[in-house]
């Protein structure tokens, strides 16, 4: 059994599952946004902000924001543990990445629900 403390879930399996589920959510969200932009070529501010004012869209977007956080962390944790062997540099990089992810998450929530 190989132990690790900076991975996301409680086991390799839960990380794998989180990455797959978040991938599916993000795939759906991407398809939705791309389709929306393609089918609304003359988009204006009123329609755009109207879309994000609706509760179902906010829920979908928040779900996607959390999915980005989880998906990015599992992926980047794998990358850092593959290539960065000096422990100090690796842990430092992981901390910076986690902070960046947290910033994105709060930023996204602020955009959705900010004044």
């Amino acid at each position: 059994m190989v132990t690790n403390v900076t991975n996301l879930g409680r086991s390799g399996l839960s990380d794998w599952l989180i990455q797959r589920v978040s991938a599916l959510i993000l795939a759906l969200y991407t398809l939705f946004i791309v389709a929306y932009l393609l089918f609304n070529p003359g988009l204006d501010y009123a329609a755009w902000s109207g879309l994000f004012a609706q509760t179902w869209m906010r829920i979908f977007t928040l779900l996607s924001l959390i999915s980005i956080a989880a998906h990015a962390w599992v992926g980047l944790w794998t990358v850092t543990t593959d290539y960065i062997k000096p422990t100090g540099v690796r842990v430092g990089t992981q901390i910076v990445i986690i902070l960046a992810i947290f910033v994105f998450l709060v930023w996204g929530i602020q955009v959705l629900w900010g004044a």
């Binding site: 204006d44 501010y45 009123a46 755009w48 902000s49 994000f52 980005i68 990015a72 992926g75 980047l76 960046a100 994105f104 930023w107 996204g108 602020q110 955009v111």
Partner: peptide, 21 residues
């Protein structure tokens, strides 16, 4: 991941006001 910075900027600006959009 790095590109998220630009995506979030566009997201933020486009929803902030008609001028931002």
């Amino acid at each position: 991941f790095i590109g998220l910075i630009f995506a979030f900027w566009a997201f933020d600006k486009s929803l902030s006001s008609p001028a931002g959009f």
